[in-house]
Every structure is written in structure tokens, then in C-alpha cells.
Amino acid sequence: MKLNLDFGVVLERWPAFLDGAVMTLQLAVIATLLGAAIGAVGAVCRRSRNRLAAGISDIYVETIRNTPLLVQIFLVYFGLASMGLKFSAFTVAAVALTINVGAYTTEIMRAGFDSIPRGQIEAAEGLALSRLQIYWHVVLWPAVERVYPALTSQFVLLMLASSVTSQISAEELTAVANYIQSDTYRAFETYILVAIAYIALSLIMRTGFWALGLVLFPRRRRLGTPL
């Protein structure tokens, strides 16, 4: 058997790949930012004394973490449509990914909050800081600092998982690849190139998060603890 690879035909389509990669990154960035916000709120709810808030947050986290992203995407897609709301595939994809990553972020943030010693909060109360100040300075930031590596890995996984939104034809990298391979009949070459593109994107995200970590947590940088 003779291998007959031709990357040229596929590489010619690089502008389409670039568009796809840009959309993948856009989805990742939107879902990361909104998911981080949901995570911060969700983790507070989960630890709150209000049982309703804690219960809702708990159900949200368990439901999302125990069902596949693919099914979640279909439910959001058809759910929005059945309410008569017409959105672009991109919006639906962003919503579904945000809901998904929000649950994982909630869980990671909760672990971070749990790692803050009670004494620190009591000390802050002793200094007469308001509840909001305590939450922001003593709980949230130190907790994020501690779980930062776990958070960033989760966000990289989210970027990779955004490939699943190709199933509702959001035109991100994988959808572009599906289109190009059906057009050129070069499936192997196309998916190899796309795999390389994803690896590059995850390296870019990892480097970005590392740099962001240096800016966000100067204390850690001074201590020399690696992120």
C-alpha cells in the first residue's frame, strides 16, 4: 500500500481555517469570562446559609457535571427554539458552553473557598471590613489564586470542548474542517492539520493564562511559587 498524502490542497484553504480558529477562540473567551462570573456567584450560593440558593446551585452543578455536553448543546438549541427565540448558532453555542463551564467553575471555586482558613475571615471581621470587602479581598482573590491552575486547565478543556458545537453548525474550527474535508476528500490531512491547530490554540491559551497569572498575583510572583 502506498501512502498518498497531499497537504497542499488543504493548506490552500488556510483563510477558512483561520476564521474557524478565531471563532473557536471567541467562543472560548466568552464562555471563560461568563463562566468565571457564574462560578464565583455559584460558589457563594453553594456555601450560603440560604438553603434555596445552596440547593439550586447544587442541582445546577450536579446536573451539568453528570450529562454530556453534546446533549446540553441540543437541549439549549431546541429549548431556545421552542420558546420562539431565534438565535445564531454562535450565540447558542456560547450560551451552552457558558452554562457548561459555569458548573465546573462553581465546583473548583467552592474548593478554593473551602481552602480559606476561617481564622482569616475572623481576622478580617476584627479589622471591621464590610462583608463585601471580606468577600472580595480575603475570600475571592486568595481562593482564585489557589485554584488558578485548576481553573486554567478547565478553561483550556472548554476551548477543546467547543469543537462539539460543530454539531449545531457553529462555524468554528471543527465545523470548518468538516466542510473542507467533504470538499477536498482529504479527510486525514484536514483533521491532522486541525489537531495541530487545536494543540497550538491550547498552547497559546496556556501561555496567556500563565502571563495573566503573573500580572494578577504579584504576591505569588514575589514568593517565587510557580503557577
Partner: peptide, 24 residues
């Protein structure tokens, strides 16, 4: 490990299912 963890499972699926047949 780095290569596989940097690639979505979906792309690995497509690569084996659609890619390998084009190689025979």
C-alpha cells in the same frame, strides 16, 4: 500525553473514522 490532551476527542474521532479510510 501533551498531544492528545491538546486535541479534542471529536477531532480524534473524525481522524480515525474519516481519515483512516482515505489512507486505505
Amino acid at each position: 500525553v501533551q498531544l492528545i490532551q491538546g486535541t479534542p476527542l471529536l477531532v480524534i474521532m473524525f481522524l480515525t473514522y474519516f481519515g483512516l479510510p482515505t489512507l486505505g
